[in-house]
Write a protein that binds this DNA or RNA. Structure first.
Length: 864
RNA sequence: GGGCCCGUGGUCUAGUCGGUUAUGACGUCGCUCUUACACAGCGGAGAUCCGGAGUUCGAAUCUCCGCGGGCCCA
């Protein structure tokens, strides 16, 4: 059959995309094979699968396909982490409404509708990239079949005391009008104004004068002589006039501002610490929408910004504010909408964080690369308070709880009632107080409560079977170690007292071509669809494989993608050349065949080890190097003459080529699913993705075959170089070539050189003259330490002929030293006598070529 | 302010349990259209391995101090 000259990635990829069956990749619960379950990250259904996700999925797919070929029962599930604010915002935008303008059910329905549409789009991208996803294990967190598990995990942790309800300060986004967790707060350096105020008999400095109404104390450092006398007394808060205590606390910095600080409920995290330590009262001056409360008197109803301006103006007028200066400080922002957060005290639901248990569990997991574990440890060590899991939003998993209308008691659902939405359904039975009027909890769960049980879900937890825990692999980016890794470890430990995964594989971030994080404002944004359109999925996957070391950041580079598509073209040409010559009938090998097969088996060994260590870049580079350099540039060139004619050894070359191409297809299958399938389809009737990973045939790894093959290759290439340097065409023939070596078969060299070859043993009748002594520094340094340098120097300077006997005597600094041949290498020069010949030295072989008279080409004449 | 990673030819990168020709890709220059491939082959040029100090006979590699970049966080 005739193969097209150009590899048409588009046609090939489309063809196999339609031909492949999903069932090829299904996990089999009844299989005898060892399980390999991957806890795939469920992406947020934005509608676009971005390049960072794509990199991660490439890693997952390399592993999934590899493990399948290695005989594992692989589960590569695909989840969708649906809940959350961004979808709510999109829905509000799209329909021109706010969440409070429609009913909760209606708003949720709109969110589900949008999410469903987005998932559909992203599924297409996943398929096009050739990922071997097990679609029978897809999960969607907004569906009852999933969130029933989220709710049951909530109930179980509530019953075991791991979840509790409390009035506690929480991070609050006034724009989103919800509590958020620490993991959702990010910080940014901003310039603000530090205001100096006359504060009764003291002077204080504050960046947040709008919080004066919430001032509950004033603090000084206990060692600060200036204020010692005031500690324990009361002062009146300016503008508002209420009295607060002056307290002493050593964490007050005397050199900051005036050395006196006001404590408000709450200006920042430090206020919370002081508030707890000194048991201070609570004054709420800011409400859930970020506006001032009644407590703020005439400022009530203003936003914090408006209030700040107004109160500063007033205090300036009244002479309270006497000085202002600029100050750069870090402001906590909501990671979704970048609004500065407030700290409000609210009744919220919390998950207990037991740092020791988390660290202990993390230590039982293999971290790849291992230094990433430090990030989890650092994060765990900085937790200030428990994980706030309640959110005042709508599109999320409902908290299955109610409050008694009469006595206010909280009732949490029983596991068997779930799933349910407490705002839609009342609990059976009455409260202990006798009332059966219930108010459903309107707060919903943090999205991480959904996704932190992904490992449990895919393992089959609560599906009527024993969960297959731990799963084998968690692949994810290092940016969500503090969230997804942290929470998953916490939850798996709390719910099933085990670790979620055996191994966690961290991938780096994808940076734009300029080395910065991809962002629309930097205009360095690339989407996978664009790459696929221009170069195909297999080229994209090659960039993912070789763009960088696993775990490190990787820069997107069009050059790498182009190099990938060139490699496909090169491979295509190799296959196009080889196909008519393939034969699966074994035959007696020639030295070059044994060389290639030895190298091939070495490659298999190498690739297997590197895949097991998640070194995709190393694996792929090794395969590419073999295919391009060893197979194409050398082996094929050497056996062409055998393949074309009817000479002896033709069958051996055909068979060798068959074995090599067949093995190469399987090695490439995890990386280039489309290309390898196309090639394999021309060799066998089955899918390459249902084949086993190549086994190493140790008996074919043969040092001797490699040495003589290498020699043949080197000689052929030396002759090629000789022709090139003498301006001869590469297919021109040389009258006679004598090769002095241990080689027993020169036919392939003759073919490649298109010349007659005479094989000789021994050495040609040349005079060998020692030319140079090269010191072996490693040996000299070990033995002679400090004198190594001067000995080496002496060796270089002495007459090389003196070393002919094998050892050498010299005197350094008046001392006689005798060095045997292990301390130096003697470079010998071969002098020719008699005929005019050119001599090429190739390792231990000597190639003698009858001298040709070079007719200079015109370019050489004009050249110099 | 803390943590983690990184700084190697023009560009990107390998090498990092110390050993003297530092790997490869892209680019560049020269030659060659050799019955698979000019999206190729062959050959060449191009690096005092960010700076400084230290350890050592010997440092891209180990230690310390700088400088620079990136990410995660406070």
């Amino acid at each position: 059959m005739e193969l097209p000259k150009e590899y048409d990635y588009n046609a090939v990829e489309e063809k196999w995309l339609n031909a492949w069956q999903d069932s090829m990749y299904y996990f089999d619960r009844n299989s005898e094979k060892p399980q390999f379950i991957i806890d795939t990250p469920p992406p947020y259904p934005t509608g676009n699968f971005h390049i960072g996700n794509a990199l991660n999925w490439c890693y997952i797919d390399f592993m999934a396909r590899y493990k399948r070929m290695r005989g594992y029962n692989v589960m590569f599930p695909e989840g969708w982490d649906c809940h959350g604010l961004p979808t709510e915002v999109k829905v509000e935008e799209a329909h021109g409404i706010t969440k409070s303008q429609v009913s909760r059910e209606e708003f949720r329905r709109l969110c589900v509708e949008l999410t469903t549409k987005n998932i559909e789009r992203m599924r297409k991208s996943l398929r096009r990239l050739g990922f071997s996803i097990d679609w029978s294990n897809e999960y969607i967190t907004m569906e009852p079949s999933y969130f029933v598990k989220t709710q049951r995990s909530f109930v179980q942790m509530y019953n075991s005391g791991m979840i509790y309800q409390q009035n506690h300060p929480v991070n609050w986004c006034p724009r989103c009008e919800t509590a958020i967790a620490f993991a959702e707060v990010e910080y940014e350096s901003r310039t603000t104004i530090l205001n100096y105020l006359n504060f009764d008999k003291l002077r204080i400095a504050t960046t947040r004068p709008e919080l004066l109404a919430a001032c509950v104390a004033v603090a000084v450092n206990p060692d600060d002589e200036r204020y010692r006398e005031y500690v324990g007394t009361e002062v009146a808060v300016p503008v508002f006039g209420h009295k607060v205590k002056v307290i002493a606390d050593k964490s007050v910095d005397p050199s900051f501002g005036t050395g006196v600080v006001m404590i408000c409920t709450f200006g920042d995290k430090q206020d919370v610490r002081w508030w707890v330590e000194h048991s201070l009262p609570l004054r709420k001056a800011i409400d859930r929408t970020g506006r001032m409360t009644e407590l703020a008197g005439k400022y009530a109803g203003l936003t914090t910004e408006e209030c700040k301006k107004a109160i500063i103006d007033d205090m300036k007028k009244d002479g309270i504010l006497y000085k202002q200066e600029e100050l750069s400080q870090n402001v906590g922002l909501c990671w979704r909408c970048k609004t500065p957060i407030e700290i409000l005290s609210e009744k919220q639901w919390f998950v207990k964080i037991i740092a020791d248990e988390i660290l202990d569990t993390a230590n039982k997991i293999t971290w790849v690369p291992d230094y990433m574990k430090v990030r989890l440890e650092n994060w765990t060590g900085t937790m200030e308070w428990d994980w706030c899991i309640s959110r005042q939003r709508i599109f999320a998993t409902p908290i299955p709880a109610w409050y008694c209308d009469r006595c206010g008691k909280t009732k949490v659902a029983k596991g068997e009632w779930l799933p349910l939405d407490p705002t839609q359904k009342k609990p059976p039975g009455a409260c202990e107080c006798g009332s059966s009027e219930w108010r459903g909890e309107e707060d919903v769960l943090d999205t991480w409560m959904d996704s932190s049980i992904s490992a449990l879900h895919v393992s089959g937890w609560l599906s009527g079977r024993e969960p297959l825990l731990p799963t084998q692999l968690r692949p994810q980016g290092y940016d969500i170690i503090r969230t997804w890794s942290f929470y998953t470890i916490l939850r798996t430990k709390a719910l099933l007292d085990t670790k979620p995964w055996e191994t966690i594989l961290l991938n780096g971030m994808v940076l734009g071509e300029d080395g910065h994080k991809m962002s629309k404002s930097r205009n360095n944004f690339v989407v996978p669809e664009e790459v696929i359109r221009k170069h195909g999925a297999d080229a994209f996957r090659q960039w993912a494989a070789i763009g960088g070391t696993t775990g490190s950041d990787i820069i997107f580079s069009w050059k790498d993608v182009v190099a990938g598509s060139r490699f496909l073209q090169k491979l295509w040409n190799i296959v196009r050349f080889s196909l008519p010559h393939l034969s699966d009938k074994p035959a007696e090998f020639k030295p070059v065949d044994r060389w290639l097969l030895s190298r091939l088996n070495r490659l298999v060994k190498d690739a297997t080890e590197k895949m097991d260590a998640y070194q995709f870049d190393e694996t792929f580079k090794a395969i590419r190097g073999f295919a391009w350099d060893i197979l194409a540039d050398n082996y094929i060139e050497l056996v062409k003459s055998r393949l074309y004619g009817e000479a002896e050894g033709k069958e051996a070359a055909q068979y060798t080529l068959f074995v090599t191409i067949e093995t190469l297809s399987r090695l490439l299958a995890p990386f280039l699913p489309y290309f390898s399938e196309e090639v394999y389809s021309h060799i066998k009737k089955e899918s390459v993705h249902l084949q086993t990973w190549p086994e190493v045939n140790e008996s074919l790894i043969d040092e001797e075959a490699e040495a003589s093959g290498e020699m043949i290759k080197e000689i052929a290439s030396a002759i090629r170089r000789y022709k090139s340097e003498h301006g001869m065409a590469l297919n021109s023939s040389l009258s006679n070539i004598e090769i002095y070596s241990s080689l027993k078969d020169g036919s392939d060299i003759a073919g490649a050189a298109n010349s007659r070859i005479s094989l000789k043993t021994g050495k040609p009748g040349f005079e060998l003259v020692a030319r140079e002594i090269i010191p072996n520094m490693k040996m000299l340094g070990r033995t002679y330490r400090g004198r190594a340098k001067s000995i080496a120097e002496a060796l270089r300077n002495m007459d090389p002929k003196l070393a002919d006997s094998g050892s050498i005597a010299l005197s350094v600094d008046g001392e006689k030293i005798i060095l045997d041949s292990s301390f130096f290498v003697l470079e010998k020069e071969k002098l020719l006598k008699g005929k005019a010949v050119d001599v090429l030295e190739v390792g231990s072989a000597v190639v003698v070529i009858a001298k040709v008279i070079t007719i200079p080409t015109s370019s050489q004449c004009t050249g110099r």
